[in-house]
Amino acid sequence: MSDKNHKGQHLRITVPQIFMVVGITAGVAVTLLFLWYAIPVLLLVFAGILLAILLHGLSDWIARRTFLSYGWSLTFVVLDLMTLFAVGLSLVAPDVADQAYHLSQQLPEALKRLEQYFAQYTWGQELLALIDKDLMPSREFMLTQASNIFSSTLNVLTSFIIILFIGLYGAAQPRLYVEGITQLVPIRRRQRVRTVLHQVGQTLLWWLFGRMISMTIVGMLTVPGLWLLGIPHILTLGLLAGLLTFIPYIGPVLSVVPAALLALLQSPIQVVNVLLLYLFLQSFEGYLLTPLVQKRTVAMPPVLTISVQVLFGTLLGFFGLMLATPLVAALMVLVRMLYVEDILGNSSKEKL
């Protein structure tokens, strides 16, 4: 009997312990809920950090090779990029806007022709019935979406301004923010943290350079390729192909859709030609350009990259889809340096 009482005393849970467990559970739940709602803001901050890394990399390169200080180099980079953007916009925007308008007028006709093609087959009729029943938005939904265009545009402009200011302030005083992070760790680990942050910054910088090079080359090669095939609106489609190259693997798939639909207005053979053109361009980018850039950064496994893109795209929309890959690149550097090297003790220079 005494042994049972002794065990019961050890198993007895006191009221303070209950309150402690409840408090910890509530704190974890509140923290997770806060992080969930803060994810869009954190993505904006991360996008601003990417811009800051790009501006800092360009400015530091100029400052180390010229007589200009870092501050004047940053000013030169910002003014140069603004001028380049303004000149390019004034030269290309009118044609792109006109082609985009005509493209929006022709895509419904292409979709109608695609629907007529599917209607010739039994499986196609079943697919169209499924789409009409479950996937096609209602009229009320379309009206609601149309009424939200203004607010969506305002949100995009607001996000752009936030990213711009975070990028400018981050590039103007990068050491201030790096040292602010290092102050949060013990003194003996601060130099290691500086090394890790520097490596993350270099990885993201080379990733950005690689994406910019790939975007430019794919966009420039798409325009003459579509012109040779006789596809209309080549400037808009080329610009779209270049921009969507920013998103590895998934972006090229999205970019081929409008071009293939326009080709369908001409003939099924043109659809095949367009698909072959885009396949060639993306193979050139994926098997030649990207591996060259990944020599200076991390080689990200395609399955991991696509999985994260789908996850972020599903949970956070197109903005999450865009930033999924650089987030994976940064996380892989952190895992390699802080876990594989520091905790596991693997000092090899092999990248993950």
Rank of each mutant, 00 (worst) to 15 (best):
L81H: 09
Y101G: 01
E126V: 12
D3R: 07
A100R: 12
R113S: 02
Q282P: 00
V21S: 02
E109Y: 11
L264W: 13
M1I: 04
A119M: 07
E109W: 05
I162M: 12
S2Q: 12
S2R: 15
L239N: 06
T66Y: 01
I247G: 00
L254Y: 02
M300C: 07
M215A: 10
L197C: 04
L68G: 04
L42F: 13
A86R: 05
L240Q: 03
H56P: 08
R65T: 04
I13L: 14
E126N: 06
R175Q: 14
G313Q: 05
L228Q: 11
L42S: 01
L323G: 06
V308C: 04
P40I: 11
E350V: 09
L239W: 10
L229S: 09
I18P: 00
V78Y: 09
F246H: 13
T203F: 01
P94Y: 11
V257I: 15
F67D: 15
V303P: 00
V256W: 00
E179N: 13
Q282K: 07
P16E: 10
T195N: 15
V200M: 09
A259H: 03
S151P: 07
S159C: 02
L128H: 06
P174I: 08
I187M: 08
T297G: 03
M212D: 10
V78I: 13
D98I: 01
V78N: 07
G167T: 12
Q191A: 08
I62R: 01
D60K: 15
P301S: 15
D134M: 12
I149V: 15
F46Q: 03
L55Q: 11
F19E: 01
S152R: 13
M136A: 14
W36S: 08
M142R: 10
I39L: 13
Q282M: 07
A26P: 02
L43Q: 08
F160K: 03
I62L: 15
I343R: 11
V21I: 12
P302Q: 10
T31E: 10
W72A: 06
S347T: 06
S214M: 13
V87A: 13
F118K: 03
M136T: 15
F165R: 03
P137N: 01
Q199T: 14
H233I: 03
L338N: 11
I149L: 14
L154Y: 08
Q199Y: 05
N273M: 14
R65W: 05
V28H: 03
A47G: 12
S267F: 10
A324R: 02
G225N: 10
W227V: 11
L344D: 01
P224H: 00
G230Y: 04
Y101V: 03
L184R: 04
L204F: 03
S348C: 07
T66D: 06
F76K: 10
I49H: 11
L164A: 13
L50Q: 11
I62V: 13
T245N: 15
F160Q: 07
P137F: 00
M300V: 14
E179R: 10
Y249P: 00
Q125E: 15
R65P: 00
L281V: 00
W123C: 02
Q199W: 02
Q202V: 03
L81Q: 13
Q120W: 00
S267V: 11
V196S: 00
G88K: 05
Q266H: 05
L316E: 00
